[in-house]
Amino acid sequence: MSDLFEALAAPARRAILDELTEKNGQTLFEICSRLAMKHGLGLSRQAISQHLEVLASAGLVTFERQGRYKYHFLNPEPLKEVVKRWLKEEQEGSDS
């Protein structure tokens, strides 16, 4: 879970997740364009690739090859663990 918090700590990586939330399944080029044009982030493609690798190792982003293209998808599943960790008691309390 420490991977998850580290992945979420960088503003650029949160911006990537925001953009994938808006449209799931993007090429590296589309992600780079969105970060530059919509977020004003002047990151190199290599830097964005590295951010995507960090997100992937935390399980938040998956890659999928479709023919000759490679797309990136958001996987919000790991975030549920974060929510459960601290909201568990509250949920149990409201049940009783």
């Binding site: 449209k23 993007q26 090429t27 080029f29 589309e30 364009s33 969105r34 044009m37 919509k38 293209y69």
Partner: peptide
């Protein structure tokens, strides 16, 4: 298309395959 119409701030862009090995 590998990218449908997308609002990129000052421009709207899309990306397609030219069937000759290029986007």
């Amino acid at each position: 298309f590998t990218q449908g119409p997308t609002d990129m701030g000052p421009v709207i862009t899309a990306v397609f395959d030219d069937t000759c090995g290029n986007l």
